[in-house]
């Protein structure tokens, strides 16, 4: 009889330990540096490729393009980028001066295996009449998603740094 009760208890308790439904985690891009521009710049337009124009996070592998199932952006990607740019170049918030438009063509990790690969960022930037295409590749080896996000942030940091020097040269 006691054994039966024990079994019932164990069975009931096991219900609490069963695997729970996985939950989604939301992310923003975190930048490490802020830059002071020597001229007034107005962020007139931010466009992203259609497949990035969503809250879902994209990745590529040998099979093609996918969205991560359990991780997403905190808001649609164009807004994430806009917020990051303003964080990085606070003077953009003044909204006056030369027109700066940015078109993000790609920004996603490309997995060569489960943990490794490279993050690719391609963007066309226009400042008044000057146009430049930025292409950044950042190799990563991540053990979990948090580490992957660190590499995503580093890639963006590199882009922002390059963008800063280019803007300064064309001011």
């Amino acid at each position: 009889m006691k054994k039966s009760f024990c079994l019932i208890f164990i069975f009931m308790l096991s219900a609490c330990t069963l695997k729970t439904t996985p939950y989604e985690t939301m992310h923003l891009l975190e930048i490490r540096y802020t830059y002071n521009l020597s001229c007034n710049i107005k962020l007139s337009e931010i466009k992203v490729a259609d497949y990035l124009n969503t809250e879902k996070m994209v990745y590529r592998d040998a099979k093609g393009l996918h969205y991560f199932a359990l991780n997403k952006w905190a808001c649609p990607f164009p807004y994430v980028i806009k917020q990051t740019l303003i964080n990085s170049f606070p003077s953009l918030y003044q909204n006056q001066g030369k027109n700066l438009s940015i078109y993000i063509l790609s920004f996603e990790p490309y997995f060569t295996n489960e943990k490794q690969g490279k993050i690719r960022l391609k963007a066309i930037v226009k400042l008044e009449n000057s146009v430049k295409t930025f292409y950044i590749e950042h190799h990563f080896n991540a053990q979990n998603f948090e580490e992957l996000m660190v590499h995503m942030n580093k890639t963006l940091d590199q882009f922002l740094k390059n963008l800063y020097f280019w803007i300064q040269a064309n001011c």
């Binding site: 996985p22 990745y59 996918h66 991560f68 199932a69 359990l70 943990k115 991540a142 979990n144 998603f145």
Partner: peptide, 9 residues
Amino acid sequence: IKPHPLEEK
């Protein structure tokens, strides 16, 4: 698709 292996770690 199913979660990427990195997402489960």
